[in-house]
Computed example of a mutant assay.
Amino acid sequence: MHYTLNQLQVFLKVAQTQSVTKAAELLHLTQPAVSIQLKNFQAQFDIPLTEVVGRKIYITEFGKEIAEAAAEIINQVNGINQKSLQYKGQLAGRLKITIVSTAKYVMPYFLSEFLRRNPGVELLMDVTNKQRVVESLEANEVDFSMVSILPQKLNLEHIDLLPNKLYMVGKTRSSFDESRSLEEQFDELNWIYREKGSGTRQMMESFVEQNHWAIAKKLELTSNEAVKQAVIAGLGFSIMPLIGLKNELNNGDIKIFSVSGLPMATMWQLVWVKGKKHSPVAQAFISHIKKEAATLIQKNFDWYIKY
């Protein structure tokens, strides 16, 4: 057999995602390139690694065993590379982070300089929902997470990074009766919500409850990006984090409406399980954040802080 490390990596990612398309996206390869590597890898075995039912790919029992072996080999190779870098005095290893979806507008700015200074560090960052973030912390699967509302049932340590400010937003030319105050019409408007369990949804529901609104017209979407596009399309109003609206506000696609009690604010926080034994990479990242956070915020979020 003459399979390559690249073929092992491709097959492992296909096995993990059960999708050639998703594997290609995560590996930053084209779908045909992944298909060719998968075909060449399969050709070295007499027993099928995968099977296609309908249009979905499934991993056979034999394929699952090969995937486990591939994961071990890749981890060993990564370990060799890390030891080589460490021997030369460079920081090396993996940094595993989960973040809620809106944090994708925040977290990369706290990572970029750290990764530039430490090319031997491999970043594994999962942008997901709040439930999955909490699960990753509970299972001790990650070094850090980023949330704007601390999970109450977990004992966490945290570093405050940036306020998370939420405003009422709508299309620039919105359909409501301008002869009456906006507050008088809240119950009549179409409202766009995040899915249940979302931190943004939690904040919006809290505000609605405080104001005793009886919202009847509701649309529920599963990401802030989807909510934003729905607002731009004129499907309704929402209460959204300012952090993801910079371009739309500058372009005039979205308008912030002045409402008593808004903006509401939570705090973006880097969190980890209390008592966690950090790797040298994780320890270095904490030191980087504590030292550089103020400078990074001023450099990248000056517009946001002043808004």
Score class of each variant (00 low, 15 high):
Val34Ile: 06
Leu27Val: 02
Leu38Val: 04
Gln37Phe: 08
Ser35Arg: 12
Phe45Lys: 07
Pro32Glu: 00
Val20Ala: 09
Val14Thr: 15
Arg55Gln: 14
Ile57Pro: 04
Pro48Asn: 04
Gln18Phe: 14
Gly54Arg: 08
Thr50Gln: 02
Val53Gly: 09
Lys22Asn: 13
Leu49Ile: 03
Val20Pro: 03
Ser35Ile: 06
Gln42Gly: 03
Thr60Cys: 04
Ala33Val: 02
Gln18Thr: 15
Lys39Tyr: 08
Ile57Met: 04
Lys39Ile: 01
Val14Asp: 12
Ala23Leu: 05
Glu25Leu: 10
Glu51Ser: 13
Phe41Cys: 01
Gln18Asp: 15
Thr30Glu: 06
Gln42Asn: 11
Leu26Glu: 14
Gln42Arg: 06
Phe45Gln: 01
Leu38Lys: 11
His28Val: 07
Leu49Lys: 03
Phe45Ala: 02
Ala15Arg: 14
Ser19Tyr: 07
Ile36Lys: 14
His28Lys: 12
Leu29Asp: 04
Ile47Ala: 06
Lys22Trp: 05
Val34His: 01
Thr17Gly: 07
Leu26Cys: 07
Thr21Ala: 13
Phe62Ile: 07
Val53Cys: 06
Gly54Leu: 00
Thr17Pro: 11
Leu38Cys: 06
Leu38Ser: 01
Val14Ser: 11
Glu61Leu: 13
Ala33His: 08
Pro32Trp: 00
Gln37Tyr: 11
Phe41Lys: 00
Val14Ala: 04
Ile57Leu: 07
Phe41Ala: 06
Ala24Cys: 02
Thr30Val: 03
Thr21Tyr: 13
Ala15Lys: 12
Gln16Cys: 09
Ala24Ile: 05
Pro32Tyr: 00
Ser19Leu: 04
Lys39Arg: 12
Tyr58Pro: 09
Val52Asn: 12
Thr17His: 15
Gln42Met: 03
Ile57Arg: 09
Gln42Ser: 14
Thr21Met: 13
Tyr58Ser: 14
Tyr58Met: 08
Phe62Lys: 07
Ile47Arg: 13
Thr60Gln: 03
Phe41His: 01
Ile36His: 07
Pro32Asp: 00
Glu25Met: 07
Val20Leu: 06
Gln31Ile: 10
Phe45Asp: 01
Gln42Trp: 03
Gln42Thr: 06
Asp46Lys: 15
Gln42Cys: 08
Leu38Gly: 02
Glu51His: 14
Lys39Ala: 08
Leu27Ser: 00
Gln42Lys: 07
Gln31Met: 07
Ile57Cys: 05
Lys56Thr: 12
Gly54Ser: 05
Glu51Asp: 08
Leu27Lys: 03
Val53Glu: 10
Pro48His: 04
Arg55Ala: 13
Glu51Cys: 10
Ala43Thr: 11
Thr50Val: 12
Thr60Val: 05
Gly54Glu: 05
Asp46His: 13
Lys39Ser: 10
Ala23Ser: 11
Tyr58Leu: 14
Lys56Phe: 09
Phe62Asp: 05
